[in-house]
Amino acid sequence: MDAARAFLRHPSGMVGLVVLLVVVVIALIAPIVFPVSPWEMVSAPFTPPGEDGLLLGGDTLGRDVAAGVAYGARVSLVIGIASAMAAMVIGVTIGAISGYFGGKVDLVLMRVTELFQTIPAFVLAILLVATFNPSLLTIILTIGAVSWPPLARLTRAEFLRLRNREFVEAALCQGEGTLQIVLGHILPNAISPILVVTSLTVATAILLESALSFMGLGDPNLMSWGFMIGAGRTVIRNAWWMSVFPGLAILITVLAINLFGEGLSDVLNPRVSRRRS
């Protein structure tokens, strides 16, 4: 729990965490503050911010932008976290197998990883979402499927570093099985950098989702930040608030996650935290 205590003393990490918590709270209380669905037309179209009881104004169809931003937080967070998890599961599994067994297995898996790395992630994501029907689940899986290569590479590097360490060899000599060694000895010692990269993957996943929604490839039943910007972009010169507020929401959330992730990395990296103390 030293790491938790050290994190509390990390200034920018704490700023990130607090902002992130605010976003989470907004996402949680959205249905209480805005009992009316964000898709409901509640005012005249093009209502500027502050008029007609709408804090952030209304959009081209008179829907409440504030409600949209609040409900969008739910979509962004769910998709961001779930797809980062998906990416972590895929990446760690492939990286662990590749790093632990080495040889031909490593060769094949790393070529596959490179294949995914050379195709631009966004193009592949568009392709996948367009092929399957866009829904919450397919979007999560798609983003997971295009975001795992860095995690696989990192996990592989960590496994290569730890595989020949003496405590791993000692476990082998003690008769422990492969799965036991990998899950019980190597992974716990490799987990810190993996967690850091996963937390930063959440931020890129949110951006990817927004970009997909902006292109009109989001889940049509979910009000998301990217969709709002996409819908408002054509009228940005006479109704800036429709795209600026969801845009700010993305900016702030992604920034907060990045600050949190970097704080985490500083705290979990023994070299940096020792220098601090």
Binding site: R165, E166, F167, E169, A170, A171, G184, H185, P188, N189
Partner: peptide
């Protein structure tokens, strides 16, 4: 092993 620091799992 030689190195008593490397031969014990730090998280166990």
């Amino acid at each position: 092993f030689q190195d008593p620091f490397a031969s014990l799992d730090p998280r166990q």
